[in-house]
Design a protein around this nucleic acid. Sequence first.
DNA 1: TTCTTAACGTAACAAATGTTACTGTAAAAA
DNA 2: TTTTTACAGTAACATTTGTTACGTTAAGAA
Lengths: 210, 210
Amino acid sequence: MIEGLQRHYSYLFEDALLKEISEIGSYKKVPEGFTLIDIGDNIKSMPLILSGAIKVMREDENGDDLILYFVEQGDTCAMTITCCMGETKSEIRAVAETDTRIIMIPIEKMQEWMHKYPSWQSFILQSYHERMKELLEAIDTIAFLKMDERLYKYLRDKAMVNRDDLIKTTHQEIAQDLHTSRVVVSRLLKKLEKENKIKLHRNSIKIIDL
Amino acid sequence: MIEGLQRHYSYLFEDALLKEISEIGSYKKVPEGFTLIDIGDNIKSMPLILSGAIKVMREDENGDDLILYFVEQGDTCAMTITCCMGETKSEIRAVAETDTRIIMIPIEKMQEWMHKYPSWQSFILQSYHERMKELLEAIDTIAFLKMDERLYKYLRDKAMVNRDDLIKTTHQEIAQDLHTSRVVVSRLLKKLEKENKIKLHRNSIKIIDL
DNA sequence: TTCTTAACGTAACAAATGTTACTGTAAAAA
DNA sequence: TTTTTACAGTAACATTTGTTACGTTAAGAA
């Protein structure tokens, strides 16, 4: 049994399914920054995350990004499910936020297991539900929060999935994720620092009271 | 057979399922403005739309609204599915955009049919997929468009689902749907009129070249 | 009809966000 | 080490969006 599969999925799946997953699924280790899925990709398999985290992004017509949410271990990317089922191209980009270990399940098995294993069907539907909620939360964030609040939420979320209150990134990168400009980010980060919510360093940001 | 069920769903569902739907589903006629589902509601059934259109909305912490998308005949509200499956409360509000005729399917049947009818399972998964795409489009609209573009898109969408290029509404109502203020809407509508995209009247707006 | 009210137009101002430009500085490269 | 480069701070300004206030007008009520 692959380490992590047992840990994160054994309480979800019956033994026979776990066995099939470990036999059929292909184990992959991807480094931070690796693009697992790109917009327009044809999806032929879906990932189960064993460890690490993945950043899910949307792109505007100029090719500029916007982060939607992070996905963690024990989760899958429900977007891939919709794509697999509909045989359509990916609507989103998935980038490894940290070094990440995954198991890829081929599309045929995905569908087969829907009929074969009740626990798999529940998992798929549950994943949909989770992702819907994530998307709604993304909408809340974008539509209802001001940029300084969005920025603070982003930093906290990032710290969470990295399990580290010291975030290693640049203002430029943050600006890209939030679909704004570097100057705006620098300005608001300074404001957050004055409010004693963060501590700024070169190439890193420390969250106070995570 | 209920009129509309045959027309919009016969190519989707097998005869036996259609029969069950017309036997078990409860037919409802709801007037424009009627709230079918509210935020926090416990969902015990899911609607199939026979005719008309439904507006799906999200609410901020002050109780102010934001439109996510319109749902038309031949569709269902995938949000209700997630809620039914997860036995959780509704995350959204669904309001009849026009006079609307629906069939309500009780939650037990929903789940039963997932196993019994392949066409039902496809429909549910397909609906998820559609709604995911709608949510992503909503995010694009909110995150990437300026208010005047959002406004114009809203007017066109509204004209589409109402099948009428004359939109009967007030600036105040539009402002509520777009989560902005009446003054902003009036200002931008005037701008759109100067650009010859719309023609303004009291209590109505005509779209030019829909 | 006149009266009342909701709808609309618009000005003036405030706040938030985006843009350009320039500086100093720490990190990385040579 | 020195040089180069990417990163961050900040000012100044533009644009977009939000707010307050008030006047005008059409629709509906009396």
